[in-house]
Each structure stands twice: as C-alpha cells, then as structure tokens.
Design a protein around this nucleic acid. Structure first.
Length: 366
DNA sequence: GTATGCTTTCGGC
DNA sequence: TTACGGCCGAAAGCATAC
C-alpha cells in the first residue's frame, strides 16, 4: 500500500503580481490592489497587496484609507482591481497545472490541488522534481511565482504550501506529518478561524500538538460531530478528501455599494436590478439554471444579513431573479425595521445544468 | 434517532 | 482612533421526512 501524493499550488500575492507584470516599473514598490466603492474618492477596501506593502502592515480587507496611512512614508502604487486580467492569467496557468495532474481541482482564482500519485509513482522525491519543474514553467511562461506544498493529502498539502511563502516549496512526507504540524498554531488548520481558535484556546490548545492531545469525545462535545472529528483527524495530519474536478460553480453572486445609506426600497431597487441583470448575464454565460435566489444586505454597521428562497424546480428566467430579489429585499426590510443598508447583493445558488442533463439523470434515463 | 433539505452565517482571499 | 469590497465555498442551525 502506497500513500497518495497531493500537491497544492498557491499563486503568490496573485492580483498584485499580475499588476507588476503589466507595468514592470512598479516592481520593488508597495503595490496595493483596491476595490473602490465609488462612494468617495478613496472609500473601499484592499483586495490584496505585494510583500513590500505587507511589510508595513497592509493586508487584504483593510480600508484603502488605512493602507494609505500605513504607506505614507513610502512610494506606494494603488491600483483598481482588474479581474478580467487576472482571470486570463489564471486560466493559462491552470491549463499548465492540469497537464501535470492525475486529477485536478481548481480552488478559486489563485489556488489548485493536484493528485499526482500515479504521475509521481507514489514517490515524494519525484513529486518534488515535478513541483520544481512546474514552478520553472510558470515563471518562464507567465513570470508568476507560486508556493507549492506536497503531502499525502489535501489538508497537509494546503498547510505545506502556506508554510514557506512567497516562492516556497515544502515537501511533507508521511513520516514527517506529525512533527511538521506539532508546533504550528491551530489557526493554520483550514476551517479554524477566530471563533474555533478562541474555543480551542479555552481548551488549552494553541498548537496542533496540544490539539492532538485532546480526547475525541471532548472535541465532539465542544464542536459537534462534524467539526469535532475533523479537528481530531486534522491534528494527526489525516484527511481522506479526494482531489476532484469542480465542474461548475455552486453559486453566483453580485454585490454593490449604494451611493448613500438608506432603507428606502425605491432608492435601493435600481442597484438591486443592475445586480440582478449582471448575475443573470453570468448565469447565461455558464449556461446554467438556478433553484435558489437570495439577497444580501450589509448594513451601516457592516453587519451582514441575508434572505433566500428555494423554488420547486430550476429555472434560468431573468424575470424571476428580478422579481424574487425585490420581494426578498422588501421582506427583509419589513422584518428588520431598524436596518439601514450600505451595500446590497443578489445571489443565485443550487445551480445546475439547464435541461436536467446531469450525468446522473442521463444515466437514469437509459 | 438519523438523514435530508433549506436558510443563514462564517471565513478565506 | 476610525476608516470598510466583492466574490466564493462550507458550516451551522433548524425543520421536516423517514
């Protein structure tokens, strides 16, 4: 019995690196890729930034104005996000990666998982050579660096790719899994955010070593069966999740910022309808149908709320999106009399191929 | 009591 | 000291079905 070999590839500070390639003269300066809300000149948030900017404490998600303060003594470059550019570069890189994998899973625009068990012949040294070759090829063809983790499963491969960045390569052979994890904070485990981390701290588990010392029954008591057993296994470097192709997105959403905070439906509807039209267009591009429509409301205090409705049968009808989203928004406003909206969004989920021609239903017909 | 489905929230980037 | 986007996938929480 030989172990799986899984590779996780993470493109370094991806949006900002694409911008560095588009305009070479900004290399070496702090580069901050921003989402401007259009409310005032500088309102909005940081999408991502290069490592020069990170040295000053700039991070994804912080307000642009705060990033400007942090970088005021430097010669920074602030750029608006250019998604079509990043999608194009990403698409070409994913096509390269795909050719190296027995099975391939794209995880968002800048991440991918490759099962290379057969290609690497179950050999982690061979896998390491493949990883180096992949890195060389992506630099040569796209001038993009990445960080790669190699391990016996997806969980460890992801933690490994995060271990050394940027331009890292970390190989965790099965015998080293426990020692690799031991001293790392529990927050390195995917799924452990601030909430779970705080709870684990109260159980005296700050490191994965300490997490591994907790009785499984105690973890299940604290976190429930699903998350509890996940944490128990994760602390031991165990994970059976297969690397599998994601054929279609599971949801499509559009979100926008209102010119002014309001709870007047008439002031919100124009934006909501634009978002509905945009998400409908995307749905048509993919050739998909939806069964669930939702609205997202971000209030003036930045709290996030949502309402959704699932239909009996899937549809691709644009009018249904417009009508249901408007109805859901009205219901939200009525149910939440104090809500004053800052941003609003439309979400389609429970997506499927149009004619009910999934492989399974095709199979069942024959 | 467990499985399944739906709604809402969480968290990563 | 504050400041504040736009996506995605998955988990949590609850109700209902079996």
């Amino acid at each position: 019995m030989s172990s799986r070999v899984v590779m996780h590839v993470d493109l370094d500070y991806f949006y900002a690196q694409c911008e560095e390639n588009k305009n070479y003269s900004i290399r070496g300066k702090p580069v901050v890729v921003c989402v401007y809300s259009g409310r005032t000149e500088e309102s909005g948030a940081v999408s991502t930034c290069n490592y020069e900017a990170r040295k000053y404490g700039v991070r994804a998600g912080i307000p642009i104005i705060r990033a400007k303060k942090l970088l005021e003594k430097t010669d920074p470059v602030f750029l608006p996000i250019n998604r079509p550019l990043y999608e194009e570069v990403s698409g070409r890189i994913m096509n390269i990666l795909r050719t190296y994998a027995d099975s391939f899973e794209q995880v968002g625009i800048d991440e991918a998982c490759l099962d290379i068990s057969a290609r690497a012949n179950g050999d982690f040294e061979h896998a390491q050579q493949m990883a180096q070759e992949i890195k060389n090829r992506i630099v040569r063809q796209e001038n993009i660096t990445c960080s790669i983790g190699i391990a016996p499963n997806k969980l460890l491969a992801k933690i490994a790719s995060d271990y050394r960045k940027p331009d890292g390569l970390t190989n965790v052979v099965p015998e080293n899994a426990r020692s690799f994890l031991s001293d790392q904070p529990v927050s390195k485990i995917p799924g452990v955010g601030t909430k779970v981390e705080e709870k684990l701290t109260s159980l005296q588990a700050k490191t994965i070593r300490e997490l591994a010392a907790i009785e499984p029954a105690k973890l299940i008591e604290a976190f429930g069966k699903s998350l509890g057993s996940y944490l128990y296994n994760a602390a031991r470097g165990e994970d059976e999740e297969p690397v599998k192709e994601r054929e279609q997105p599971t949801q499509l959403s559009r979100i926008g910022t209102l010119k002014n905070n309001t709870r007047e439906i008439a002031k919100i509807l124009p934006t909501l309808n634009e978002l509905s039209a945009s998400v409908a267009q995307k749905l048509a591009q993919y050739g998909l149908a939806f069964r669930s429509v939702g609205v997202i409301a971000i209030l003036e205090d930045l709290s996030i709320h949502s309402r959704s409705k699932t239909l009996d049968t899937a549809t691709d009808d644009t009018n249904t999106i417009h009508e249901l989203s408007a109805q859901l928004l009205k219901e939200f406003l009525q149910s939440t009399p104090k809500a004053v909206l800052r941003r609003v969004g439309v979400k389609l989920s429970d997506l499927s191929g149009k004619v009910g021609q999934t492989e399974l239903s095709q199979f069942l017909k024959e």
